[in-house]
Design a protein around this nucleic acid. Structure first.
Lengths: 163, 163
DNA sequence: TTAATATAGTTAGCTTGCTAAGTAAATAGA
DNA sequence: TCTATTTACTTAGCAAGCTAACTATATTAA
């Protein structure tokens, strides 16, 4: 009833391609839903994470939470600031870092956004049990660990070649 | 032993972000490994799919298999052709379509590529059972279906507004 | 047979990830 | 205290996904 496809075999050929495709599709679903708010994928994701980590978060903390690099975040924050949804304030304790705050308008957009996301979540996970979703989460975390380990080892290999 | 994270809760906030991150990381692992071959992610993925669907496949069939749109594929094929790994021949039965074939050099690259991918697959799936991987596959397929259904419904909604 | 529509592929330009290299502020060492 | 290094962020430009709009060929209908 639950199993269906030989994942191990399927991915033998396409590796992580399936994940990329599903990711693009899910992203598209949300983007269609939030289009009236003038939000693209990177913008709505960023708003959700700012709220999750609390206002006043630094850009570095935010980038880490989103799993993206600083330059990618810089661009998105610039766009959000231009749309008057957030403001960036220099931290007076450490004037290198900037902290993110919502504007009034930003908070309104966030609350509409969260309602829409809740609806979509139900649609996307339809037909999957909490148990199955937990196993998927475990698998994703495991693969992320494995990938990072592998990347680190490649980097060490490079450095050895330098000497 | 297997479960660990509350996926359902985690994704409540970040939705498909986890998938995107894991996808980017896995892609990076392969890209590092195949860099000596001068292949980027889109190029090696395309080579693997051409081989999977057999030489002589049309661009449309290939795009569908890769889960990407034609313009994305056009660019990648152009690069692969410039690197002398494939050739595109106009189908004489239907002169609109083009069929893809490997060059001698392309076949050599493919075989090295496949060895490397097999190694990486083992690394990335390390610590996951076939059963867990099957559940992940099922979940991905299910989410893909759900997402497509949702996108179709949005499109219908748009058309109704037009009348 | 000719005009209208559909299909395969291309081109142009957007989004959002990335790395490399730069600036300005903070910290460590001489 | 003054220089050197590290850190937070920015800028510039590449990679690879996308849509919209184009060309050329094939099909369908008048």
């Amino acid at each position: 009833m639950t199993k269906q496809l030989p994942f191990y075999e399927t991915l033998d050929l396409t590796l992580c391609g399936n994940m990329g495709r599903v990711h693009r599709l899910c992203r598209e679903v949300v983007t269609i839903a939030v289009e009236p708010l003038g939000l693209t994928q990177s913008r709505w994701t960023t708003l959700v994470h700012v709220n999750m980590l609390q206002e006043g978060v630094t850009q570095l903390e935010l980038a880490h939470s989103l799993g993206i690099e600083m330059p990618s975040l810089t661009r998105t924050l610039k766009q959000l600031e231009e749309s008057l949804l957030i403001v960036r304030k220099v931290d007076q304790q450490d004037r290198r870092s900037k902290r993110i705050y919502f504007t009034e308008q930003g908070r309104n957009v966030l609350s509409t956004l969260q309602e829409k996301i809740a609806d979509i979540k139900d649609q996307l996970y339809h037909g999957l049990s909490h148990e199955q979703l937990d196993i998927m989460a475990y698998g994703l975390v495991k693969m992320e660990e494995n990938a990072k380990k592998s990347i680190i080892q490649s980097t060490i290999g490079e450095n050895l070649n330098d000497t």
